[in-house]
Simulated assay, not measured.
Amino acid sequence: MKRLIGYLMLLLIGTGCSGQVTASSDEIISNVLASNKDIGSVYSEGEMLLYIDDELTEQVTFEEYVSSEGQRKIITSDAITNQQSMAVNDGETMVIYEQGSDTAHSIDVAGLDLPTSFTQKEQVTAMIENMKDTHSFEIKGEEEVLGFDTYHLLLKANAPSSIIGDMELWVDQKTWFVIKSKTISGETRSEMQYEYIDFSPTFPVDTFTLDLPDSVTIQPLEGGNQAQQGTIAEAEEALETPFYVVDQENVSIREIEVYSFGGEVNRNEVTIYYSIDDDPAFLLSVFPTPEGPGMSLGNSGEESVRGHAIEYMEEIRSIMWDEDGLRYSIIIENPDVSFEKALEAANQMTLSSEE
């Protein structure tokens, strides 16, 4: 299930240039974003690739069904693991199922814009929306891709600490559909290529349903992940160790939440919300340091917390570091709280056992 959601974040390459560009990069981006508001019905097929340190770690083919009424169905097949996953969103409920499992997961999505409800086009345009202030845009040329005349765009990150690195897009000049994309962020490169697109499909009435085996039970995904209000002592118990908390005279705790995640995530997590002089300031999230490919943090320069290198994500104003088996993340909520102030608070933390 985690892979299926992750695949919706992945995006590939192009062919030769030709002709004179007839639109500015700002005009193209504006049209791409505007086109996402009225997608209509689309059926598409494509492939996604994920590389870590130039090693291919995931190769996934996908089928996307999108109705003009807002229904979505996505089927992904992993060429490496031979695993197939499916997700259906009927506008009220999303059901996610991984072939061979005895459990499917449902999410109540009524009135929500969850990332897991996005097709590749919707996911890419959501990313572009968040990149307008953190990336520069330029047109590299016009190219024919999959029989479409496209604009080839380069989105260049303004800072090396950007959570989303450099991106290339190939955008259809008529429909503003993103035909291909390629994203590089640190050691990770993700690529996406549509191989077939039908802008006027006819769907059978049962398209946006899942025919699950009788032995499969549907479990609400949010049921096991509800936050529990807690205390510092209960947070310590959940993490099974003391952890660092903010300790400054004018900083106070508003709320403490303790999460228990099952499935592939399988961890406890603590989130503490802080105020400065009674105004919401930032939140601190703490959980066991994840392991495996792509899980390590980057290095955002000379700044550190108690000698530990930090990764700063400018888009969400997040400071992250690993310390004594735990991963810490401070996300700044208040625009009046500077990076320097949050970093100072991190360096002045004390262990929860000393509180």
Rank of each mutant, 00 (worst) to 15 (best):
R72W: 01
I218M: 01
E236T: 04
R254S: 15
L4D: 03
I272V: 13
I28W: 06
L8W: 02
E27A: 13
G224C: 11
A238L: 05
P115I: 11
E237T: 12
A126H: 10
V88Q: 02
L8G: 13
A34Q: 14
L221T: 02
T183Y: 05
G40N: 02
E355R: 13
P204G: 10
L210C: 07
F208D: 08
A233F: 10
E47S: 07
L12N: 13
L112F: 13
W321M: 07
A309G: 07
M320Y: 05
Q99F: 08
F261E: 10
E354K: 09
G165V: 06
D53M: 09
K140G: 15
M131N: 00
Y312Q: 03
R72H: 07
L155C: 10
G223H: 11
L12V: 15
Q59V: 08
P201K: 04
T202L: 15
R327K: 06
S30Y: 07
A238W: 00
Q99G: 05
I197G: 04
E45W: 05
S190C: 11
V205C: 07
Y312P: 04
I218W: 02
N36F: 02
A104Y: 00
D322K: 01
D53F: 10
R3S: 14
V124D: 11
E264N: 06
I331D: 06
D206I: 09
I74N: 02
E302C: 05
L10Y: 13
E269H: 03
P115Q: 00
F339K: 10
T207S: 11
E314I: 13
S200R: 08
Y51L: 14
I253K: 03
W170D: 05
E92W: 00
Q99H: 04
P288K: 00
S185W: 02
L11Y: 09
A309D: 15
I179H: 03
Y51I: 06
S260Q: 10
F339L: 14
F339Y: 13
G224F: 14
V286C: 01
L49I: 11
N250W: 04
I232H: 04
W170Q: 01
K156M: 09
S24H: 05
Q83F: 12
V286M: 00
Q193N: 15
N299L: 06
D198L: 07
D102N: 14
D38N: 15
D214C: 07
E27D: 13
G141C: 06
P115V: 09
E344G: 12
Y51A: 06
T289Y: 04
G223A: 11
S162M: 11
I179V: 14
